[in-house]
């Protein structure tokens, strides 16, 4: 299990290849990558991501441990960036390894649903018109409820 909270970009191909390497017992590797999306009509200059050092790592570790306990996972990788990111840059990735694909997919969704509303990150969108904190969505709470 590896958790990384970092400002620097990551290499998706290398991370996925390293994660998948040498796992003859794992028949399924799923990766999900979140990308900074531009805003239609009001171009995004930068997305600033703030986090709570210490709690972030603890919360992500706890989520990954829950995923391992809940699904038949061989391994989990979570990388999440903070700082100033441009449209098209990768914000985060999760990877899950399981003997079968159903668990690998479900665990990746579980991790994403938790990351969205239980990991202490806050996003702010900066455009030529000004800047705004991204509001949490009700649908993210609904997505989380299905796992309880």
């Amino acid at each position: 299990m590896r958790i990384s909270v970092q400002e620097a970009p990551f290499d998706l191909g290398r991370e996925a290849a390293d994660f998948a390497a040498g796992r003859a017992d794992m028949g399924a590797i799923v990766t999900f990558t979140g990308v900074v999306r531009d805003l239609p009509g009001d171009p995004l200059e930068v997305m600033e991501i703030e986090h709570y050092p210490g709690m972030t790592e603890a919360a992500l570790t706890e989520m990954a441990q829950q995923a391992v306990a809940r699904f038949s996972l061989g391994d989990v990788l979570v990388i999440h960036r903070f700082g100033a990111l441009k449209p098209g840059e990768m914000i985060m990735m999760v990877a899950t390894a399981a003997p079968h694909r159903k668990d690998a997919f479900a665990a990746a969704e579980f991790l994403m649903d938790y990351l969205k509303s239980r990991a202490p990150f806050w996003k702010r969108e900066v455009t030529a018109q000004g800047s705004d904190w991204v509001a949490a969505k009700d649908e993210d709470e609904v997505a989380l409820d299905r796992w309880s």
Binding site: G34, Y52, G54, M55, A58, A59, H80, I91, M92, M112, L115, K116, S117, R118, A119, P120, F121, W122, K123, W133, V134, A135, A136
Partner: peptide, 29 residues
């Protein structure tokens, strides 16, 4: 609110607590 870096409710006790954090709903991912 987080109490000693764990999410908590507003009625959480503060006995022996070293750190309390206040923030809006989180927007990770």
């Amino acid at each position: 609110v987080a109490v000693d870096q764990t999410l908590a409710e507003f009625d959480a006790p503060l006995d022996g607590v070293r750190e309390v954090a206040f923030f809006p709903p989180m927007t990770g991912g």
